[in-house]
Design a protein around this nucleic acid. Structure first.
Lengths: 195, 195, 195, 195
DNA sequence: GATGAATGAGCATTCATTCAT
DNA sequence: CATGAATGAATGCTCATTCAT
């Protein structure tokens, strides 16, 4: 363990610091306003040092994307035979909670989706995620319909699209409050239940 | 038809050409990739000529925003006593149709919403629009519930949020096909109908 | 006399208007800040119209120089046998008066002298003027010394240089007031008189 | 002597190089003709490098002004009880000498005075200098008169204005030679002496 | 690992000037 | 004579990237 001088930190820690600063910069200013110099300043290091860790701006952005997407992958595992209504309700509450807790994550994610229109690779990555998410919800609706808890004429895929759409639009519905969002979540649940 | 040596066209026409080219550039490359030089090239004019019409890049962007937002304002007027279900169905079909017809519009609009997080003025403009849209839908749901056509436990506001969310997410649901989108629209309608 | 429409004016009048506007622009902003477009705006005509009268910016500047230098040439003719002291006193008062009346003239002239360092042609023009001015003063001092009105050890050329220097420095002595300037003029006269 | 691949020199040295080049450029072409690109070329560095040291053209100009004005401030301290005539003679010779040695300094200073008409801040700076200079000379003349070495009817302030005027006009008296300037200086001294 | 200094490629903007009408 | 529209050639400035120390 070499004695560290000044604010010397472990390499991996430095990388994380830089990625976090970049993530925040993107959330605040968009990709449009991302400047590697500013990120370096934020971390308190020289630009040349930043380039030692991330040779190009692209590499830094890729690391941020990795971090964000990595977080997303962890779709909450639905217990084998849990109640579909509860699972749906909890899923909605879970995402809504994350939205309130870390808006930055959603902002950057939004930027990522905007970018995906021009970046095929990014698009592929996000598409995999979207498909998995829709599948997760489809299974819930299928299960609920099969059990007779949800409407018999319920279209599992259509409902999945509605849920994903609602949750993805959280940031872009500018007139949305926390209460209205919860109201919409409740309405979604009622809408699929058997009357 | 006076053929002019210099490729001169009517002033207003020129402005429109430039705005259209800029709009397309934003849709293709994002605000991030917008270069006035490229817009000028696209139109086939000199950069200085572009600046003759739009003194700054900001003014050009403002014109594009104006064009897009201006299009949005025209919320389809609901006939006095039209059938709520039909109105809803038609509204969903109308937006879905526009999405298929002019994806650029939605892409730029998406960029605009991303920007609104950093641009208070833009945010205010879009917020007005969002509020009007939600109000329009809320009235439909209210009407349908009052008439007994929609579910008695329907929350008009919650349902409005779900519809807006679905339609706003069209672009960011990467795995969405035209059919799946229509399926979701159908599901939305079924979900609010009295069983 | 053709009927004139709108603010149509005679050609020579237009030229004069433009030159005056340019002169004022130079006095206000310096050559550095001279913009032909602004001059045209000031006159209320199109730039292209201005270029009709003055094909190039250089031609416009030349016209301004001409106007200023033309004014200078009129060195007040010393009456054949006038009193040297009176002539000197009047000359000093004359320049001082003009300085108070039309500061713009002195400002532009100052700009001209600054420019003469880079513009040999302008330098030649101004040099002729300077030489004539010095000669005029030298003659006065010579005359006054010969008549015994001025000091016997007076150096006519040296005194001429002092007078010209004083008058040329009016603009660049930032702490100078009208009174102090008059005081210096008086001192100059006393300094050459026989005690 | 560490030879560096990139033509790097000490930071402060670089700044000085750049300021000197800018000063010379201003002396040669005026503020009107000052181009940061040309200054960079003169120094042999990239424009971006120049902007590394001076973020804006204005900052560079300010540095040049600082350098020039800084030099001026050093008014030669008059020894406690030195002979007024000698002090005056030496002062005149000192400025004349500097004029011959470094004409650039006077040219830039002249530009500065021209500029001061549009730049209040610069005007304030130069005004302080002018007032100090006039005060310095006034004290000399006062002292000489009190001692009976100078004329009894000498106006110290008027004489100070004449001296400053003469020295400031050195550059704009186009027909002036070194000899004529010395002649004028001698005349100035004689003019204040008691006959 | 870290940094000061340097650079190339670009970018929005300005400005005198031109030309068809 | 007058003008709207157009253009070429700068001009100041930015930014990601590099490299010797």
């Amino acid at each position: 363990m070499p004695a560290s001088r000044r604010n010397a930190v472990d390499g991996e820690q430095r990388r994380a610091q830089i990625v976090d600063a970049a993530r925040h910069a993107i959330a605040t200013l968009g990709f449009e306003g991302l400047r590697v110099r500013d990120v370096a300043d934020q971390v308190g290091i020289n630009i040349a040092t930043l380039h030692y860790y991330f040779p190009t701006k692209e590499a830094l952005v890729a690391a941020v994307v990795q971090q964000i997407v990595g977080t997303l992958d962890r779709v909450p595992p639905s217990g084998p035979a849990r109640d579909p209504r509860t699972v749906l309700t909890e899923h909605l509450a879970h995402i809504l909670g994350r939205f309130e807790a870390d808006r930055d994550e959603f902002v950057v994610l939004n930027e990522l989706y905007a970018r995906s229109g021009r970046d095929p690779e990014l698009r592929a990555t996000l598409l995999v995620n979207d498909a998995a998410w829709a599948g997760f919800l489809r299974a819930i609706f299928q299960d609920g319909r099969d059990r007779g808890q949800f409407r018999a004429d319920l279209d599992p895929d259509g409902a999945a699209v509605l849920v994903v759409g609602f949750l993805k639009s959280l940031l872009s519905q500018l007139d949305l409050t926390a209460e209205r969002a919860r109201g919409a979540a409740d309405e979604m649940v009622r809408a699929v239940l058997r009357s």
